[in-house]
């Protein structure tokens, strides 16, 4: 008799890890009726020590390394999965503080997940204690090109254009040059506003960070993104935080500049190194 037997089930499935939560020392693994990334119920919390790992079983036919790489290029598939991932975290968040994993963190077996919990017990416990009672809020700042240009030029360029005078070509070139000049001023000006807004918003947060700028290709929006911040806010300070955003919008709205808030998010931006 061979002393090993291939178990086909183990080869076809893996365990997708969403995040880590605090549990009681004596808790057993919990089977929930929540829906995971496969769009079917079966989310469980694997408990080890004082930590729980929120996981669900996924077929390797969809989440195997090679397949996944290909699937990631399929925006429809990606959107569905990212939404399912987020919706689950959103539900967990209502009852527990969670340390969110990056999308696509997949383990071969539940034992491997347990290993991680054991090895990183202290790290995750400390992180979870720090995060408890806090939420992440995202703030993106945009400007509407034309409105901001108009505000920045406030009349000065229309007279210049008038002098452009004789030829159509000359007027076109002049307009183009003015346009470029204004946009460069708009970039500088909006950066300044971004710094100012960041300063005001930080007051109401315990941690804050600036995230990367995204081009209009990625944002898919008409407006230009000039600010992309994330803030870890105590639940009690949320009102003051929102109030500050509204105040800033009131102040700069007429210039074509506005801030958009999203959240509450699991603390994605505050669990890194």
């Amino acid at each position: 008799m061979p002393d090993f037997v291939k178990v086909p089930l183990e080869e076809e499935f893996a365990w997708y890890l969403y995040g880590i939560v605090l549990c009681g020392e004596n808790d057993r693994d919990i089977d929930t009726d929540l829906t995971g990334i496969s769009a079917e119920p079966g989310v469980r919390i694997i408990v080890s020590g004082s930590l729980g790992a929120v996981v669900s079983r996924v077929p390797l036919s969809q989440f195997g390394a090679a397949v996944l790489e290909e699937k990631l290029q399929d925006l429809r598939w990606l959107e569905e999965k990212v939404r399912l991932h987020q919706e689950l975290l959103q539900q967990i968040m209502q009852e527990r503080t969670i340390v969110p994993m990056k999308f696509g963190t997949i383990f071969q077996s539940q034992e491997r997940v347990r290993d991680i919990l054991e090895k990183q017990q202290e790290h995750f416990q400390a992180l979870l204690k720090f995060l408890t009672g806090h939420e992440e809020w995202g703030v993106k700042g945009y400007y509407r090109r034309e409105e901001l240009h108009e505000y920045l030029s406030s009349g000065e360029c229309s007279s210049k254009l008038g002098q452009g005078g004789t030829g159509l070509g000359k007027a076109y070139l002049l307009r183009k040059k003015l346009e470029e000049e204004l946009e460069s001023r708009a970039v500088d000006y909006s950066r300044q506003i971004g710094e100012e807004a960041y300063g005001w918003l930080r007051v109401h947060s315990v941690r804050s960070t600036l995230n990367k700028f995204l081009s209009r290709n990625v944002t898919g929006r008409e407006e230009e993104l000039f600010f992309n911040g994330a803030f870890l806010v105590a639940k009690g300070s949320h009102g003051a935080f929102r109030h500050t955003v509204e105040k800033l919008n009131g102040e700069f709205g007429a210039q074509g500049i506005f801030l958009e808030v999203s959240g509450p998010w699991p603390p994605y931006s505050f669990v890194g190194e």
């Binding site: 893996a14 959107e79 990212v82 939404r83 990056k102 999308f103 696509g104 997949i106 491997r112 669990v271």
Partner: peptide, 28 residues
């Protein structure tokens, strides 16, 4: 939150969060 844009989701879920290495079978 259906009104959460795909951009906001990708900006976080794909870009942020804990990256585990070692025991992981797959990570992006």
């Amino acid at each position: 939150q259906k009104d959460v844009t795909l951009l906001e989701l990708l900006d976080r879920i794909l870009d942020k969060g804990v990256v585990l290495t070692g025991d992981v079978l797959i990570s992006i």
